[in-house]
Amino acid sequence: MQTALKSKPEIIPTTSRLTGRDKWDHFLARCRYRRMSHIVSPGLYSLGSPGPESQIFVSANYTLSFDALRSSLEGIDCYILVLNTYGINVWCAAGKGTFGTEEVIERIELTELKNLVKNKVLILPQLGAPGVCSQEVERRTGFKVEFGPVRARDIKHYLTNGKATPEMRKVNFDIKDRAILIPVELIGLAPYILVLSILFYFISGFWSALAIAAIGISGAVFFPLLLPFLPTKDFTSKGLVLGVVTSIPFAYQSIAWSDEILTYNAISAIAWILLISPWVAYIALNFTGSTTFTSRTGVRREIFRYIPILAVIFISGLILSVLLGIGSYLGWF
């Protein structure tokens, strides 16, 4: 009597309305608070009162992904098939294969979607395409895969036009997209900034502590904002440029606000630049992973090209600082 025990898969009702609680959850997700726990249960959801011919959209079980989709479907009776991507957004999950062919097929079977609908078309977000082979899904389940637009907010246009315009198919990385990453970047760096600036405050004083904070803020706030405006092409050299700019006030104060003799001050100014700029560049290099336009080949090339350079710059700064210390002890200046 096993079949009697097997319950019918549940269809979970949802709405296109985002509540205050949803928005609070989005805020926390954007602040990196418990980043793996912004999760929706995988399964089949109904929005409005869908019938056998209603459209079926597919999403990830990350609240930001699922909510972006459902809030764009106001007034549309449809199903939403939520895959288990372990609380990861569509694009990143597709890159790893969790938003993938096998998961789509398995979720169709688990929810017994075939028995529920006559419509045999699934609309997937375009950014899920790196993980999903549309032919394979169709071959094994009978469901045709259609890739919708990149952004959920274009879905209604997509449905009316029956196809996505080239504009809907492209990812942007505009000022809003970049600015929204700042809290995550900053909060990710915060523990390092805090510990190191306290440490350096006691080792070498106020300006060193401030320099640590400046590196963090420059890399996490100004780099994302200024990305397209920084000269040069790759991320690390852009970061290096920003790093030099960041270090200028520190170099300046060591010349302008110090009574000691010129050679010492000049060397110390150079040391500030050499010590600060490679770290901003390093944060910039890591920002490549937060964008949607750096290739693995490109990132690897940047790493091999720049990491040795950054290391040499920083070590030169360290050597200069040590020499300054020894020098002033021995009375060279």
Binding site: C92, G95, K96, T101, A129, P130, G131, V132, C133, S134, Q135, L285, N286, T288, G289, T294, S295, R296, T297, G298, V299, R300, E302, I303
Partner: peptide, 18 residues
């Protein structure tokens, strides 16, 4: 992954610098 005739080849991967 979506080309039905294998006309495209690319070494894809997650470009995580860290």
């Amino acid at each position: 992954i979506n080309c039905p005739v294998g006309a495209i080849h690319v070494e894809s991967g997650v470009g995580c610098a860290a």
